[in-house]
Design a protein around this nucleic acid. Structure first.
Lengths: 126, 126
DNA sequence: ATTATACGAAACCAAATGGTTTCGTGTCAA
DNA sequence: TTGACACGAAACCATTTGGTTTCGTATAAT
């Protein structure tokens, strides 16, 4: 019972720059298709298809008002992205913490655990 | 001077489920290509191409050791995703806060500002 | 009633994507 | 030195993607 079919997932939906832009635009409020498409250098139909993909991912909802279809953003599905990301945060946080220790100790001899960071900081100049 | 060419961006890189899985796998540690590809129902070459795309986005780094190429994860570029996401968090947080107020007040008459939530909670059974 | 507007569906197209097989090269092992 | 192993490059292929134009239909305006 329940649950959307979700033919397109959130990761795929936000992969396209135009769709990310659409999301941003709609975050300012509901808007009908023609008004939306005025912001883009492509046909209304193309924009409409992007909106469909966003809708499949649950990131926008449509509402018919007279002869127009108004779209609005739905941010909730982005929580999945946030959860996914949470797993990886510790990795860059560890590295930042290590870097901080390294800088504060201001020693030059690179301890083994920090080699990756040292390498990164030197990656310029051959 | 400086700055990666970044032919592939992070959003596109993580759009593919296989690549997300690769990232997860490599988060456990450095691994050579053949070992990596044993986890997937596709050829080593295919995996190699996914790794290339991840590398283009800066999400993995390679290191040659003897005849093998070992890959490791680099989480930092995911910070871009985090920053992107930060903009949208307030939207679902607002909604959650509104829902909380709604539930706690346990009134039945829907105030105008909460119509979207009411609608959402009733969306079944027409 | 007629015309104009707003939109989606359909058919179509070029390019990108995700995969394959085949082959060449560098490196380790006998 | 002769294999065997690890890998990437290249050529190729089917499907998906991002876009177009054309058309039909519902609603609003005259």
């Amino acid at each position: 019972m329940a649950a959307e079919p979700a033919k397109h997932d959130v990761f795929q939906a936000i992969a396209d720059p135009t769709r990310r832009s659409l999301l941003r635009l709609l975050s300012e409020g509901e808007m009908p298709v023609t008004a939306i498409s005025r912001h883009y250098p492509m046909t209304r139909t193309a924009v409409s298809k992007h909106l469909r993909i966003l809708a499949d991912a649950g990131l926008v909802k449509e509402r018919k008002v007279g002869r127009e279809t108004r779209y609005r953003m739905e941010a909730e599905p982005l929580q999945e992205l946030k959860r996914w990301l949470a797993y990886y945060e510790r990795f860059w946080e560890n590295k930042l913490a290590a870097l901080k220790r390294y800088v504060e100790s201001d020693e030059e001899g690179g301890e083994p655990g920090l080699s990756a960071i040292a390498e990164q900081r030197e990656s310029r100049t051959e």
